[in-house]
C-alpha cells in the first residue's frame, strides 16, 4: 500500500492526485504502526497513529491551500507547469 502511494506520487502529474497519494502513504504507515502494535500487544502503535492523523490533517490543509494558489496562478493542476525555478 505504501509502494502504491509512492508510485502514485511519482507518476501522477495532477497535484490533487499527488496529495491523495501522499495521504495513501501516510495511511499505509499508520496501518503499519497499528498492526505492529496489535501483533506485539503494545499501545504505542495506536498513539503513533493519532500523531500521524494530526500530521496528515495539517498536511492536507497546507497542500490544498497550495493547490488553490497553483490553480489561480496557472489555471491548471499540472505540477510540471510550476517549474519556473530552474537553476
Amino acid at each position: 500500500m505504501f509502494a502504491l502511494g509512492l508510485i502514485g506520487l511519482l507518476v501522477r502529474r495532477n497535484l490533487l492526485f499527488i496529495l491523495m497519494a501522499i495521504e495513501v502513504m501516510l495511511n499505509a504507515s499508520g496501518l503499519a504502526f497499528v498492526s505492529a502494535g496489535a501483533r506485539w500487544g503494545q499501545a504505542d502503535g495506536q498513539v503513533m497513529f493519532l500523531f500521524i492523523l494530526t500530521v496528515a490533517a495539517a498536511e492536507v490543509a497546507v497542500g490544498l491551500a497550495l493547490l488553490l494558489r497553483l490553480y489561480h496562478r496557472f489555471h491548471s493542476l499540472d505540477v510540471d507547469a510550476a517549474s519556473e525555478m530552474r537553476g
Binding site: 509512492l6 502529474r13 510540471d80 510550476a82 517549474s83 519556473e84 530552474r86 537553476g87
Partner: peptide, 18 residues
C-alpha cells in the same frame, strides 16, 4: 554542473529523494 539538477520539477525532486 550541479545547477543542471535544479530543474524546478517537483516530481524529479521526489524521485531523487526516494
Amino acid at each position: 554542473s550541479l545547477r543542471l539538477t535544479e530543474t524546478g520539477r517537483v516530481r524529479w525532486y521526489a524521485t531523487a529523494l526516494v
